[in-house]
C-alpha cells in the first residue's frame, strides 16, 4: 500500500514535470512554425520558456480597484490545470490520477481554471477585461457541448469515461481512422482543440489589439509572477488538449508499462506526435483567418454535427 502510494507520488511528480517543461516547448514550436510560414525566421523555440522564467522573476503591478481574487486566481487556475493534466495520459496508457477521475473531471477542472480567469478579468474594472471575459464565457459555453460530444463518440467505443480504459480500447484499433465514424469524430475533436486552445479561426493568440482579444483580454491586468502563471497555465492547457487528442485518436505506440525500452520508445513517439500536431496547428492558423465573433458558434455547431453524425454511423453500421 505504502509502496503503491510512493509509486503514485513519483508518477505524479514525473508527469507534472513533463507538463511544466513540455508546454512552453510546444508553444515555442508552434510559434516557430508559424514564423516560418510567414517567411520569418522567428524566435527560438525556447523563447516561451525564457518568457515564463522572466515573468516569474519580475515584480507585479496590481490594480488598486482589484481585490484578493486577482492574486488568488492565477494560483487556482495554474493548479487546476496541472491537476487536470495529471488525469490525462501522455506516453503511457494510464495517467497518474487515472483512478481518481475521468474525462468529465478533466473538463470541469479546466472549467475551474476558466472560471477564475474570467472572474479575475472583471476584478480591475477595465472594460477590456469584461470584454475578454464575456466573450470567453460565451464561446466557452458553446465549446463545452461540442467538446463533450466529440469525447462522447470516443467514450461510446469503450463504454467508459475513464481515459486509461479508452486508450487501451483505442490502441487495439490501429486502423480505426479508416472507419468513417472515427474520422468524423477526429475532425470534430480537432475543431474543439483549436477552439479550446484559443487559436485562429476562433481567437487570435498573437493579437494585442485591445478590441479583438479574448484570452489575452482577460490577462490584460496581469503582470509579473501572476502573468507568468497565467500564461504557463494557458500553455499547459494547450498541451492537455493535445494530450487528450493523442489519447483519444492517436494512441498507437503508447507504453503499456514502465519497462525501460517500451517507455523510451513511447516517449519518442509521443514527442513526434506532439510536434506533428503542433505544426499542423501552425499550418491551420496560418492559412485561416479569424472568423467573425458571431460566426464561431457555427463552426462549433459543425463540430457538434460531425459528432452526432459519427455516433449515428457507429450505431447504424
Amino acid at each position: 500500500m505504502l509502496e503503491q502510494m510512493i509509486q503514485m507520488a513519483g508518477w505524479i511528480v514525473l508527469q507534472t514535470a513533463i507538463l511544466l517543461l513540455l508546454a512552453p516547448l510546444v508553444q515555442g514550436l508552434i510559434k516557430k512554425s508559424k514564423a516560418r510560414l510567414q517567411s520569418r525566421i522567428g524566435p527560438s523555440i525556447l523563447q516561451p520558456s525564457y518568457d515564463i522564467i522572466k515573468y516569474l522573476k519580475k515584480d507585479a503591478v496590481i490594480s488598486d480597484k482589484a481585490s484578493w481574487l486577482t492574486r488568488v486566481a492565477p494560483y487556482i487556475a495554474f493548479t487546476a490545470v496541472i491537476t487536470a493534466g495529471l488525469l490525462v495520459p501522455t506516453f503511457i496508457v494510464n495517467a497518474p490520477l487515472g483512478v481518481a477521475g475521468d474525462i468529465i473531471m478533466v473538463i470541469y477542472l479546466l472549467g475551474l481554471a476558466r472560471f477564475f480567469t474570467a472572474l479575475a478579468a472583471l476584478d480591475a474594472g477595465s472594460s477590456f477585461g469584461g470584454m475578454g471575459s464575456s466573450r470567453e464565457m460565451a464561446l466557452g459555453a458553446i465549446i463545452e457541448p461540442a467538446f463533450l460530444l466529440a469525447l462522447f463518440t470516443v467514450c461510446l467505443l469503450s463504454g467508459t469515461t475513464k481515459l486509461g480504459q479508452i486508450v487501451q480500447v483505442m490502441s487495439g484499433k490501429e486502423w480505426a481512422l479508416i472507419d468513417p465514424s472515427y474520422a468524423l469524430a477526429f475532425l470534430a475533436m480537432f475543431i474543439v482543440v483549436i477552439a479550446e486552445t484559443g487559436r485562429i479561426p476562433v481567437d487570435n493568440p498573437d493579437t494585442h489589439l485591445e478590441l479583438t482579444m479574448i484570452h489575452e483580454g482577460m490577462l490584460l491586468e496581469y503582470s509579473g509572477r501572476y502573468l507568468g502563471l497565467m500564461l504557463w497555465a494557458a500553455e499547459i492547457k494547450q498541451l492537455i488538449m493535445l494530450n487528450l487528442f493523442i489519447s483519444a485518436f492517436l494512441p498507437w505506440g503508447m507504453a503499456l508499462d514502465w519497462s525501460s525500452i517500451g517507455a523510451g520508445a513511447a516517449i519518442f513517439i509521443y514527442g513526434l506526435k506532439l510536434a506533428l500536431l503542433g505544426i499542423l496547428l501552425a499550418v491551420i492558423e496560418t492559412a485561416y483567418a479569424k472568423m467573425r465573433l458571431y460566426k464561431v458558434p457555427k463552426l462549433l455547431a459543425a463540430s457538434m454535427a460531425l459528432s452526432v453524425l459519427a455516433v449515428i454511423m457507429r450505431v447504424v453500421m
Binding site: 474520422a183 475532425l187 492559412a287 454535427a305 454511423m313 453500421m317
Partner: peptide, 21 residues
C-alpha cells in the same frame, strides 16, 4: 452513408482545400 461522410467532410473544410493549397 458514404455520401453523408463526404458531405460532412466538405462541411468541415468548407471547400477551402484549394485555397489552402
Amino acid at each position: 452513408m458514404r455520401a453523408a461522410t463526404v458531405k460532412a467532410l466538405n462541411l468541415a473544410v468548407e471547400g477551402e482545400g484549394n485555397e489552402m493549397f
